[in-house]
């Protein structure tokens, strides 16, 4: 019995021949840059046409508006023409003039009249959507790409208008992707 017990203990002692655990040094100070993405829709508009390779064609705003500067902003979406036709507008009680500046397609104006460049649209949204802006500043709203550890790389923050259509900011219903097709579902006795 004693021999048995001893050999059992010896066997147990043979376990744990682990290599020493390896750890890499901790993250250093943030060196990577955080930039805010500038989506195409801030500088161009889809034409509804595709090029020879089937890619959708976009027209830069400046292409038309450098020549054509409307004298006033429309009072409703029905008045829009050309590429802007069919624009849907569902955004609280604001109007075109709440944000856009007549005669200049590259800028927006804040409620206090300050002019800001179109690419700084975040500042405009922040005026009304304070909690979202606060969360955004803390990385808890809006999402991002790249590095969580800024000592290892750069980070690109999503712009408000990457996810939200400024004229209709609520998410529109879409068909979900990748339906579950695992065993059980495949066998036709699937999940509810």
């Amino acid at each position: 019995m004693r021999v048995l017990a001893l050999s059992f203990l010896a066997l147990l002692a043979a376990c744990g021949t682990d290599q020493p655990g390896r750890l890499r040094p901790p993250p250093g100070p943030p060196t990577g840059a955080t930039t805010i993405h500038v989506p195409d829709r801030l500088t161009s508009i889809p034409t509804g046409e595709v090029d020879a390779l089937g890619r959708p064609q976009r027209a830069p705003c400046v292409g038309c508006h450098s020549l054509r500067r409307p004298a006033r902003l429309p009072s409703s979406v029905d008045e829009l023409d050309e590429f802007h036709q069919g624009l849907r507008f569902v955004h609280g009680g604001v109007s075109c003039a709440s944000c856009h500046v007549v005669g200049d397609q590259d800028v927006l104006h804040r409620a206090d009249g300050t002019i800001i460049p179109m690419v700084d649209v975040l500042q405009l949204c922040a005026q009304c959507h304070g909690p979202q802006y606060r969360d955004y500043l803390h990385g808890a709203h809006g999402g991002m790409n790249g590095a969580w550890d800024l000592s290892s790389g750069d980070r690109v923050r999503n712009n408000c208008v990457d996810c939200h259509d400024p004229h209709q900011p609520a998410f529109q219903p879409s068909v979900p992707v990748l339906p579950p097709r695992d065993r059980g579902v495949l066998q036709g006795r699937g999940a509810r």
């Binding site: 010896a10 066997l11 147990l12 043979a14 376990c15």
Partner: peptide
């Protein structure tokens, strides 16, 4: 799964 030989 063998005690002493594998990782029990």
């Amino acid at each position: 799964i063998l005690p002493g030989i594998g990782r029990f």
